[in-house]
Nucleic acid binder design. Structure first.
Length: 160
DNA sequence: GCCAACGTTGGC
DNA sequence: GCCAACGTTGGC
């Protein structure tokens, strides 16, 4: 049975974990830990599936933008950093018997020929409704439509 | 580094 | 259950 594929945009600060870092561990998967927002968690828990495609977005950098394509490599499972007192993601209110925070594994999927900066995304007509470009958006994981995903991927595959 | 926007917390 | 205070995000 052919399962419907979903598309996502996931933000990361490249100083912390960049697309190049993900690519460097190409054979392995990377746990997307530290998500401490219920909406983002619920997307992972309720809608993400292995094989879903991801726009890997660099935030808090100049310029912000989509750096490459990743893919979801696992279903959601408890985020161990929530129980690690030494982790900056430690959450004393997360009960190991009933974990509050989840993560998914992510892996490198494909390079783009070039970076697609936020300024350019704002100019793409297909992307006008994206949550990313709405004022005040802070959500680090957002669903994107197939046409939004394709429009950004196509832009990144065109030569600069 | 600034600051607007947003989510969460906790007193009441 | 309201809402002010607070901490965080992220573009600029």
């Amino acid at each position: 049975m052919l399962q419907q594929m979903n598309y996502w945009l996931m933000k990361s600060e490249p100083d912390v974990f960049s697309f190049e870092d993900l690519k460097a561990c190409q054979q392995q998967t990377e746990p997307w830990d530290g998500i401490r927002n219920y909406q983002a968690r619920n997307f992972m828990r309720d809608a993400m599936k292995p094989g879903d495609q991801v726009l890997f977005y660099h935030s808090n950098t100049n310029p912000p933008g989509v750096a490459g394509i990743a893919e979801i490599a696992s279903k959601a499972y408890p985020d161990p950093t929530a129980f690690d007192k030494k982790s900056s993601y430690y959450d004393p209110k997360s009960d190991p018997e009933n974990p509050r925070w989840l993560l998914v594994d992510v892996r490198f999927k494909a390079d783009l020929k070039r970076y697609v900066a936020l300024d350019e995304i704002k100019q793409i007509p297909e992307c006008a409704a994206m949550r990313l470009i709405q004022r005040g958006n802070r959500l680090s994981i957002t669903p994107v439509s197939k046409s939004e995903f394709q429009a950004i991927k196509n832009a990144g595959m065109r030569q600069a």
